[in-house]
Design a protein around this nucleic acid. Structure first.
Length: 593
RNA sequence: GGGGGUGUAGCUCAGUUGGUUAGAGCGAUCGCCUGUCACGCGAUAGGUCGCGGGUUCGAGUCCCGUCACUCCCGCCA
């Protein structure tokens, strides 16, 4: 029998009536009636009410013991009378009559109340994270995270994947995010880098013949924080498979996501087979490559309407002539919405840096007409054409925006979100997954040079067995993203396992063979000794847990997060180091830091 | 690097047009209370109004600067 407990604080029921028990835990709450004291004892498993009265010699001592102190009590389970049952806790049918107690760990005056629904500043929460983590909601989030990770491990093992660790001290990668560097003592002047992802290692694992690999992999990128992005480190479910095509990877991930999300959330998954949306189509319909498909609104291109002579909306017509595009969003049956609804969206668009959003509502008396500030510029025929193009009907409204392609995509994408939110069109009780596929390999850089738009290791798609190297900007890759509720969970690809093809693609981006050999020596060398076709993906664990826990901030699902300035306020990291440590590493600091 | 928000008691917040001694709830301390489960009642302690400067007879309040936290942009192959 344990010295500290016979039961935990979440398991006793009336079945245990009149048993003698020992419980240990934190004092969650005291209700002191002067001669009678109720004390809620809490541990990881639950809360149990304990009672003591003044006839017990321990009464005064216990009455004075601080909240959040850790105590051990011995006592007897007593079934509560009907009118004193607490239905809110698992152990609410019983209480413990305290016989004696022992103070195991005393607690000073608390810098933040643990038992409370209050919100606290991030600063105090992070500094006293061990107290913050005792609180119910975040405690449960962290447990959820643990359960999600074990579930993933179990599923992956059952699917025949092997889990391997890859090095944490590795080499700096030439492209991508900023690296965290670690100076090498044995190699003065040289640095390790922490991996941004185990990308090259997992491909090497495939070349080594292990067939299917996964890892709950820590990844390190020295980039600025966001609400959904920790500074410094995050975790991916990194996976890679040999002898597969894109659909094989999709099948594994779809099955995993559906199992995972249905096990850990009661929200419904809208489509169990995730729609595949080509990148170009996503950019057109949603203005982004991470569309929230819970949102029923779609974006329509109406540029050609503004080339018609019977449309007199000159501001847009002029812009269209100089190469701008017009995009529109249709809202169903909004003819009775107040003027303020439309004006708010126009004002909002202006706040977002757009020139605003023009709008009108389609009406029909004798013939189709448009009602609204710019309605008079549209002829009946042009309106009929708009209705044909967009599926809009009488009583529907259209919101227009006109700008250069990138800006018009951006503003229409966030307008789609804004309008749907205003009209309450998004079903918060669902998950909507999709695959974005057919990413272009290259894009035109600001310097008018062709550059890789994503991962340079992706396999280009061929048409009729041929790859069209003459038009590199048209080349598509077997590269894909998985998106859920507008959040990018991950991107992945079928890899380019042919060195010749890799040299060719790099040459299109302006790298000669020698540069490729230097930059990616490990990879390119390995691919030259018999590499299997392979591909994979790496869904972000943190974002998955955020979706499952319904949290907007990554710190709510991270045990010991850093603040926005990448500092750990509890451990005081980063910190200064001694002169000797620097000396050993052959480092010196600039004086004026 | 840039933009927005916040900063008043241990915690969460209020503080009017610039005007006497800066308040409340929770927590702490002390006292009363034997059926509470956000127990109740009474009292006490607790403040560099983030920091520095300015305007003013007078600044928590107005102005300038600065720091911290946070959200966003840039960045994130």
């Amino acid at each position: 029998m344990s010295k500290y407990r016979t039961h935990n604080c979440g398991e006793l029921t009336k079945k245990n009536n009149s048993q003698n028990v020992i419980l240990s835990g934190w004092i969650n709450k005291k209700r002191d009636h002067g001669n009678l004291l109720f004390l809620d004892l809490r541990d990881n498993y639950g809360i149990t009410q304990c009672v003591i009265d003044k006839s017990n010699k321990n009464f005064i001592k216990l009455e004075k013991t601080q909240l959040e102190s850790v105590i051990k009590i011995t006592g007897r389970v007593l079934e509560r009378s009907k009118d004193t049952i607490n239905k809110d806790i698992k152990t609410g049918e019983i209480e413990i009559t305290i016989d004696s107690f022992e103070l195991l760990g005393s607690c000073k005056e608390l810098p933040l109340p643990v038992f409370s629904d209050q919100e606290y500043s991030e600063e105090i929460r992070l500094k006293y994270r061990f107290l913050d983590l005792r609180r119910k909601k975040i405690h449960e989030n962290i447990i959820l995270r643990s359960n999600v990770i074990s579930f993933i491990r179990k599923e992956m093992n059952e699917l025949g994947f092997l889990e391997f660790q890859t090095p944490i001290l590795t080499s700096s990668s030439p492209e991508g995010a900023r690296d965290f560097l670690v100076p090498s003592r044995l190699n003065p002047g040289k640095f390790y880098a922490l991996p941004q992802a185990p990308q090259q290692f997992k491909q090497l694992i495939m070349v080594s013949g292990f067939d299917k690999y996964f890892q709950i992999a820590p990844c390190f990128r020295d980039e600025d924080a966001r609400a959904d992005r920790s500074p410094g480190e995050f975790y991916q479910l990194d996976l890679e498979m040999s002898f597969v095509e894109q659909e094989d990877v999709f099948n594994v991930v779809e099955k995993l996501m559906v199992n995972l999300f249905s096990k850990f959330s009661s929200k419904k998954i809208l489509t169990k087979k995730f729609p595949r949306i080509p990148f170009e189509e996503a950019m057109m319909k949603y203005g982004t490559d991470k569309p929230d498909l819970r949102n029923p609104l779609k974006i329509h291109d109406l540029t050609h309407i503004f080339e018609r002579d019977d449309v007199k909306f000159d501001i847009f017509k002029k812009l269209v002539k100089s190469g701008s595009k017009v995009r529109a969003i249709v809202t169903k049956n909004t003819k009775d919405k107040p003027r303020s609804f439309f004006d708010n969206i126009d004002k909002w668009a202006k706040d977002q840096g757009a020139s605003g959003m023009a709008y009108f509502t389609i009406e029909k008396q004798n013939q189709i007409s448009a009602k609204g500030p710019v309605g008079k510029f549209f002829s009946t025929k042009s309106l009929e054409e708009i209705m044909k193009n967009t599926g809009a009907q009488e009583g529907d409204s259209l919101f227009f925006t006109c700008d250069k392609i990138k800006q018009v995509q951006k503003i229409s994408s966030i307008a789609r979100e804004k309008i749907a939110t205003d009209l309450n069109l998004i079903d918060e009780n669902s998950f909507s997954f999709c695959w974005i596929v057919d990413y272009p390999i290259f894009e035109m850089g600001d310097d008018n040079k062709i550059k890789f738009s994503h991962n340079p290791f992706s396999m280009p798609q061929s048409i009729d067995g041929k790859i069209d190297f003459e038009n590199p900007l048209n080349l598509k890759a077997y590269q894909y993203d998985i998106v859920c509720n507008g959040i990018e969970l991950s991107s992945g690809a079928i890899r380019n396992h042919k060195p010749d093809l890799m040299y060719k693609l790099f040459s299109l981006a302006g790298y000669d063979k020698k540069q490729v050999d230097t930059k990616f020596s490990g990879m390119i060398n390995a691919l030259s000794y018999g590499a299997p076709p392979h591909g994979g993906i790496a869904p972000g664990i943190d974002r998955i847990v955020m979706l499952l826990a319904n949290e907007k901030n990554i710190r709510e699902i991270t045990m010991f997060p850093m603040n926005q300035n990448a500092q750990d306020l509890m451990m005081n990291a980063p910190s200064e180091v001694s002169i000797n440590q620097l000396k050993e590493l052959n480092l010196s600091l600039k004086k004026n830091i």
